[in-house]
Amino acid sequence: MSDTASAQLNDHLRVPDFFGSSTGRVVTLVFMAVLLLVPVAAHFLGIRLQLVSLDFITRILCLAIAAVSLNLILGFGGMISFGHAAFIGIGAYCVGIPAYHGYGSAWLHFPLAVVASAAFALITGAISLRTRGVYFIMITMAFAQMGYYFFLSLEEYGGDDGLTIYSRSVFGIIDIEDKMVLFLLTYACLVAAIYSVYRIVNSRFGMVVRGCNSNEARMKALGYNTYAYKLTAYVIAGGMCGLAGALLGNFTTFISPDMMSWSRSGELMFMVILGGTGSLFGPVFGAVTFVFIEELLSSFTTYWALPFGILLILSVLFIKGGLNGLIQRGWKRD
Protein backbone atom coordinates (compact mmCIF):
# COMPACT_ATOMS: atom_id res chain seq x y z
CA MET A 1 0.00 0.00 0.00
CA SER A 2 2.79 2.41 0.69
CA ASP A 3 3.97 2.15 -2.94
CA THR A 4 1.38 4.67 -4.05
CA ALA A 5 2.25 6.86 -1.10
CA SER A 6 5.96 6.70 -1.94
CA ALA A 7 5.30 7.43 -5.60
CA GLN A 8 3.37 10.56 -4.72
CA LEU A 9 5.65 11.70 -1.95
CA ASN A 10 7.88 13.93 -4.04
CA ASP A 11 4.86 15.83 -5.37
CA HIS A 12 4.07 16.85 -1.84
CA LEU A 13 7.45 18.02 -0.59
CA ARG A 14 7.34 21.69 -1.37
CA VAL A 15 7.65 24.95 0.51
CA PRO A 16 5.43 27.87 -0.50
CA ASP A 17 7.35 30.37 -2.59
CA PHE A 18 8.82 33.34 -0.74
CA PHE A 19 7.18 35.75 -3.17
CA GLY A 20 3.98 33.83 -3.89
CA SER A 21 2.71 33.80 -7.48
CA SER A 22 4.79 34.84 -10.51
CA THR A 23 3.00 38.20 -10.65
CA GLY A 24 3.56 38.51 -6.92
CA ARG A 25 7.26 37.88 -7.40
CA VAL A 26 7.70 40.63 -9.99
CA VAL A 27 5.61 43.23 -8.20
CA THR A 28 7.11 42.49 -4.79
CA LEU A 29 10.70 42.62 -6.04
CA VAL A 30 10.09 45.87 -7.91
CA PHE A 31 8.35 47.34 -4.87
CA MET A 32 11.17 46.38 -2.51
CA ALA A 33 13.76 47.69 -4.97
CA VAL A 34 11.94 51.01 -5.29
CA LEU A 35 11.73 51.24 -1.51
CA LEU A 36 15.51 50.82 -1.34
CA LEU A 37 16.75 52.70 -4.39
CA VAL A 38 14.46 55.72 -4.68
CA PRO A 39 15.33 57.33 -1.33
CA VAL A 40 19.02 56.55 -1.87
CA ALA A 41 18.95 58.12 -5.34
CA ALA A 42 16.97 61.11 -4.10
CA HIS A 43 19.53 61.60 -1.36
CA PHE A 44 22.49 61.63 -3.73
CA LEU A 45 20.70 63.73 -6.33
CA GLY A 46 19.73 66.24 -3.65
CA ILE A 47 15.97 66.00 -4.29
CA ARG A 48 14.23 67.69 -1.38
CA LEU A 49 10.84 66.06 -1.75
CA GLN A 50 9.57 64.81 1.63
CA LEU A 51 7.88 61.71 0.23
CA VAL A 52 11.09 60.22 -1.12
CA SER A 53 13.43 61.44 1.62
CA LEU A 54 15.54 59.01 3.63
CA ASP A 55 13.90 60.24 6.83
CA PHE A 56 10.36 59.64 5.66
CA ILE A 57 11.11 56.17 4.29
CA THR A 58 13.14 55.16 7.37
CA ARG A 59 10.13 55.91 9.55
CA ILE A 60 7.95 53.79 7.26
CA LEU A 61 10.44 50.93 7.41
CA CYS A 62 10.40 50.95 11.22
CA LEU A 63 6.60 50.78 11.21
CA ALA A 64 6.75 48.06 8.56
CA ILE A 65 8.91 45.90 10.83
CA ALA A 66 6.37 46.41 13.61
CA ALA A 67 3.56 45.49 11.22
CA VAL A 68 5.42 42.38 10.04
CA SER A 69 5.78 41.26 13.66
CA LEU A 70 2.10 41.97 14.38
CA ASN A 71 1.15 39.97 11.30
CA LEU A 72 2.91 36.92 12.71
CA ILE A 73 0.39 36.73 15.55
CA LEU A 74 -2.59 38.52 13.99
CA GLY A 75 -2.39 37.18 10.46
CA PHE A 76 -0.88 33.75 10.90
CA GLY A 77 -1.82 33.07 14.52
CA GLY A 78 -5.26 34.68 14.61
CA MET A 79 -4.42 36.52 17.82
CA ILE A 80 -5.95 39.96 17.41
CA SER A 81 -3.64 41.99 19.60
CA PHE A 82 -4.68 45.60 20.10
CA GLY A 83 -1.63 46.44 22.17
CA HIS A 84 1.23 45.94 19.79
CA ALA A 85 2.49 49.51 19.99
CA ALA A 86 3.53 48.80 23.59
CA PHE A 87 6.48 46.86 22.23
CA ILE A 88 7.51 49.80 20.06
CA GLY A 89 7.49 52.02 23.13
CA ILE A 90 9.44 49.55 25.24
CA GLY A 91 12.02 49.09 22.47
CA ALA A 92 12.42 52.84 22.12
CA TYR A 93 12.80 53.42 25.86
CA CYS A 94 15.45 50.67 25.91
CA VAL A 95 17.47 53.05 23.75
CA GLY A 96 16.43 56.27 25.47
CA ILE A 97 16.88 55.35 29.12
CA PRO A 98 20.41 53.84 28.86
CA ALA A 99 21.42 56.72 26.58
CA TYR A 100 20.12 59.19 29.20
CA HIS A 101 22.42 57.54 31.75
CA GLY A 102 25.36 57.65 29.37
CA TYR A 103 25.33 54.08 28.11
CA GLY A 104 25.37 54.53 24.37
CA SER A 105 26.34 51.12 23.03
CA ALA A 106 24.04 49.60 20.45
CA TRP A 107 25.17 46.19 21.68
CA LEU A 108 23.37 47.09 24.91
CA HIS A 109 20.38 48.92 23.41
CA PHE A 110 19.26 46.46 20.79
CA PRO A 111 19.50 43.21 22.78
CA LEU A 112 17.87 44.98 25.72
CA ALA A 113 15.03 46.21 23.50
CA VAL A 114 14.38 42.70 22.17
CA VAL A 115 14.66 40.99 25.56
CA ALA A 116 12.57 43.55 27.44
CA SER A 117 9.82 43.48 24.82
CA ALA A 118 9.85 39.70 24.73
CA ALA A 119 9.64 39.62 28.54
CA PHE A 120 6.69 42.03 28.50
CA ALA A 121 5.08 39.81 25.85
CA LEU A 122 5.68 36.73 27.98
CA ILE A 123 4.05 38.18 31.08
CA THR A 124 1.11 39.92 29.39
CA GLY A 125 0.67 37.12 26.84
CA ALA A 126 0.55 34.48 29.57
CA ILE A 127 -2.48 36.26 31.00
CA SER A 128 -4.09 37.55 27.79
CA LEU A 129 -4.00 34.17 26.03
CA ARG A 130 -6.22 32.69 28.70
CA THR A 131 -9.01 34.72 27.13
CA ARG A 132 -10.26 34.76 23.57
CA GLY A 133 -12.20 36.82 21.10
CA VAL A 134 -13.17 40.31 22.16
CA TYR A 135 -11.71 39.73 25.63
CA PHE A 136 -8.28 39.07 24.15
CA ILE A 137 -8.48 42.29 22.13
CA MET A 138 -9.49 44.29 25.19
CA ILE A 139 -6.96 42.81 27.56
CA THR A 140 -4.01 43.32 25.19
CA MET A 141 -5.10 46.92 24.81
CA ALA A 142 -5.38 47.28 28.57
CA PHE A 143 -1.84 46.01 29.09
CA ALA A 144 -0.51 48.41 26.46
CA GLN A 145 -2.28 51.27 28.19
CA MET A 146 -0.68 50.22 31.47
CA GLY A 147 2.69 50.52 29.73
CA TYR A 148 1.68 53.89 28.37
CA TYR A 149 0.79 55.24 31.82
CA PHE A 150 3.88 53.65 33.33
CA PHE A 151 6.19 55.65 31.07
CA LEU A 152 3.94 58.68 31.41
CA SER A 153 4.55 58.62 35.16
CA LEU A 154 8.35 58.37 34.91
CA GLU A 155 9.20 62.01 35.65
CA GLU A 156 12.90 61.25 35.55
CA TYR A 157 12.63 60.34 31.86
CA GLY A 158 10.45 63.24 30.85
CA GLY A 159 7.00 61.81 31.61
CA ASP A 160 4.53 62.99 29.00
CA ASP A 161 7.02 65.57 27.69
CA GLY A 162 9.10 62.72 26.32
CA LEU A 163 12.82 62.15 26.32
CA THR A 164 15.36 63.45 23.84
CA ILE A 165 18.14 61.10 22.78
CA TYR A 166 21.24 63.23 22.24
CA SER A 167 23.26 60.63 20.42
CA ARG A 168 22.18 57.54 18.56
CA SER A 169 23.24 54.02 19.51
CA VAL A 170 26.93 53.39 18.89
CA PHE A 171 27.69 50.27 16.87
CA GLY A 172 31.45 50.74 16.62
CA ILE A 173 32.21 50.15 12.97
CA ILE A 174 29.02 51.56 11.48
CA ASP A 175 27.81 55.00 12.38
CA ILE A 176 24.03 55.42 12.39
CA GLU A 177 24.31 59.15 13.02
CA ASP A 178 24.61 59.11 9.23
CA LYS A 179 21.01 58.85 8.12
CA MET A 180 21.96 56.83 5.06
CA VAL A 181 23.52 54.18 7.30
CA LEU A 182 20.48 54.13 9.59
CA PHE A 183 18.23 53.78 6.56
CA LEU A 184 20.24 50.83 5.22
CA LEU A 185 20.35 49.19 8.64
CA THR A 186 16.58 49.53 9.00
CA TYR A 187 16.04 48.18 5.50
CA ALA A 188 18.24 45.17 6.29
CA CYS A 189 16.32 44.58 9.52
CA LEU A 190 13.02 44.66 7.62
CA VAL A 191 14.24 42.10 5.08
CA ALA A 192 15.58 39.92 7.90
CA ALA A 193 12.24 40.20 9.72
CA ILE A 194 10.25 39.18 6.64
CA TYR A 195 12.58 36.27 5.94
CA SER A 196 12.39 35.12 9.57
CA VAL A 197 8.60 35.15 9.43
CA TYR A 198 8.79 33.16 6.19
CA ARG A 199 10.95 30.52 7.85
CA ILE A 200 8.87 30.50 11.04
CA VAL A 201 5.44 30.17 9.45
CA ASN A 202 6.57 27.26 7.28
CA SER A 203 8.38 25.47 10.09
CA ARG A 204 6.81 22.85 12.33
CA PHE A 205 6.18 25.57 14.87
CA GLY A 206 4.55 27.80 12.27
CA MET A 207 2.26 25.02 11.06
CA VAL A 208 1.09 24.58 14.64
CA VAL A 209 0.43 28.30 15.05
CA ARG A 210 -1.54 28.37 11.79
CA GLY A 211 -3.44 25.30 12.90
CA CYS A 212 -4.40 27.07 16.13
CA ASN A 213 -5.69 29.98 14.07
CA SER A 214 -7.75 27.71 11.86
CA ASN A 215 -9.21 25.34 14.47
CA GLU A 216 -7.89 25.35 18.00
CA ALA A 217 -10.23 22.64 19.33
CA ARG A 218 -8.96 20.29 16.66
CA MET A 219 -5.34 21.10 17.54
CA LYS A 220 -6.00 20.15 21.15
CA ALA A 221 -7.68 16.92 20.09
CA LEU A 222 -4.61 16.12 17.97
CA GLY A 223 -2.46 16.47 21.07
CA TYR A 224 -1.07 19.99 20.89
CA ASN A 225 -0.72 22.17 23.94
CA THR A 226 -2.00 25.13 21.96
CA TYR A 227 -1.50 27.64 24.75
CA ALA A 228 2.27 27.08 24.86
CA TYR A 229 2.66 27.48 21.09
CA LYS A 230 0.51 30.59 20.90
CA LEU A 231 2.38 32.15 23.80
CA THR A 232 5.71 31.44 22.13
CA ALA A 233 4.50 33.10 18.93
CA TYR A 234 3.35 36.08 20.97
CA VAL A 235 6.79 36.39 22.59
CA ILE A 236 8.60 36.18 19.23
CA ALA A 237 6.34 38.88 17.79
CA GLY A 238 6.92 41.05 20.86
CA GLY A 239 10.69 40.73 20.59
CA MET A 240 10.65 41.53 16.90
CA CYS A 241 8.52 44.61 17.52
CA GLY A 242 10.94 45.67 20.24
CA LEU A 243 13.62 45.79 17.55
CA ALA A 244 11.35 48.06 15.48
CA GLY A 245 10.97 50.29 18.54
CA ALA A 246 14.74 50.52 19.09
CA LEU A 247 15.20 51.53 15.44
CA LEU A 248 12.36 54.05 15.62
CA GLY A 249 13.78 55.54 18.82
CA ASN A 250 17.14 55.95 17.12
CA PHE A 251 15.50 57.48 14.11
CA THR A 252 13.33 60.06 15.86
CA THR A 253 15.92 60.70 18.64
CA PHE A 254 12.93 61.72 20.67
CA ILE A 255 10.72 59.26 22.48
CA SER A 256 7.50 59.74 24.38
CA PRO A 257 4.69 57.57 25.73
CA ASP A 258 2.69 58.60 22.65
CA MET A 259 4.61 55.99 20.68
CA MET A 260 2.67 53.32 22.54
CA SER A 261 -0.79 54.83 22.80
CA TRP A 262 -3.71 52.63 21.79
CA SER A 263 -4.27 54.59 18.60
CA ARG A 264 -0.76 53.58 17.49
CA SER A 265 -1.71 49.96 18.03
CA GLY A 266 -4.80 50.55 15.94
CA GLU A 267 -2.70 52.00 13.13
CA LEU A 268 -0.48 48.92 13.10
CA MET A 269 -3.58 46.74 12.86
CA PHE A 270 -4.81 48.82 9.94
CA MET A 271 -1.49 48.40 8.15
CA VAL A 272 -1.62 44.64 8.52
CA ILE A 273 -5.26 44.35 7.44
CA LEU A 274 -4.86 46.81 4.57
CA GLY A 275 -1.80 44.96 3.30
CA GLY A 276 -3.27 41.51 3.73
CA THR A 277 -3.25 39.40 6.90
CA GLY A 278 -1.27 36.21 6.83
CA SER A 279 0.91 37.25 3.90
CA LEU A 280 4.65 37.85 4.02
CA PHE A 281 4.96 41.22 2.32
CA GLY A 282 1.41 42.43 2.96
CA PRO A 283 2.33 44.36 6.12
CA VAL A 284 5.02 46.22 4.17
CA PHE A 285 2.57 47.16 1.41
CA GLY A 286 0.14 48.16 4.13
CA ALA A 287 2.63 50.28 6.08
CA VAL A 288 3.86 52.14 2.99
CA THR A 289 0.36 52.77 1.67
CA PHE A 290 -0.95 53.80 5.07
CA VAL A 291 1.77 56.36 5.77
CA PHE A 292 1.76 57.73 2.22
CA ILE A 293 -2.00 58.26 2.17
CA GLU A 294 -1.87 59.76 5.65
CA GLU A 295 0.88 62.16 4.53
CA LEU A 296 -0.87 63.14 1.30
CA LEU A 297 -4.30 63.65 2.83
CA SER A 298 -2.97 65.61 5.77
CA SER A 299 -1.31 68.05 3.38
CA PHE A 300 -4.73 68.84 1.89
CA THR A 301 -6.89 68.97 4.98
CA THR A 302 -6.67 68.87 8.74
CA TYR A 303 -9.65 66.52 8.68
CA TRP A 304 -7.63 63.90 6.81
CA ALA A 305 -8.69 61.14 9.17
CA LEU A 306 -12.25 61.14 7.78
CA PRO A 307 -11.53 60.33 4.11
CA PHE A 308 -8.73 58.09 5.31
CA GLY A 309 -11.12 56.05 7.44
CA ILE A 310 -13.56 55.72 4.53
CA LEU A 311 -10.75 54.53 2.26
CA LEU A 312 -9.73 51.90 4.78
CA ILE A 313 -13.27 50.63 5.19
CA LEU A 314 -13.71 50.39 1.43
CA SER A 315 -10.43 48.56 0.98
CA VAL A 316 -11.30 46.02 3.65
CA LEU A 317 -14.78 45.51 2.20
CA PHE A 318 -13.80 45.21 -1.44
CA ILE A 319 -10.27 43.87 -1.68
CA LYS A 320 -10.10 40.24 -0.64
CA GLY A 321 -6.78 39.46 1.01
CA GLY A 322 -5.74 43.10 1.15
CA LEU A 323 -3.17 44.69 -1.15
CA ASN A 324 -1.07 41.55 -1.17
CA GLY A 325 -4.06 39.52 -2.32
CA LEU A 326 -4.62 42.01 -5.13
CA ILE A 327 -1.00 41.77 -6.19
CA GLN A 328 -0.82 37.99 -6.02
CA ARG A 329 -3.92 37.68 -8.21
CA GLY A 330 -2.55 40.17 -10.72
CA TRP A 331 -4.93 43.06 -9.86
CA LYS A 332 -8.09 41.00 -10.10
CA ARG A 333 -10.59 41.73 -7.36
CA ASP A 334 -11.09 38.12 -6.36
Binding site: N202, R204, F205, G206, M207, Y229
Partner: peptide
Amino acid sequence: SFRFWQPATTQARLRKPALE
Protein backbone atom coordinates in the same frame (compact mmCIF):
# COMPACT_ATOMS: atom_id res chain seq x y z
CA SER B 1 7.03 21.35 17.67
CA PHE B 2 9.29 24.10 18.95
CA ARG B 3 11.27 23.88 15.73
CA PHE B 4 11.29 27.29 14.18
CA TRP B 5 13.44 27.25 11.07
CA GLN B 6 13.36 24.09 8.92
CA PRO B 7 10.35 23.89 6.61
CA ALA B 8 7.79 21.34 7.78
CA THR B 9 6.32 20.78 4.34
CA THR B 10 9.47 19.17 2.94
CA GLN B 11 9.88 16.61 5.71
CA ALA B 12 9.29 13.10 4.40
CA ARG B 13 8.90 11.79 7.92
CA LEU B 14 5.72 13.84 8.24
CA ARG B 15 4.48 13.66 4.66
CA LYS B 16 4.95 9.96 4.03
CA PRO B 17 2.88 8.71 6.99
CA ALA B 18 0.30 11.35 6.03
CA LEU B 19 0.04 9.99 2.50
CA GLU B 20 -0.23 6.45 3.79
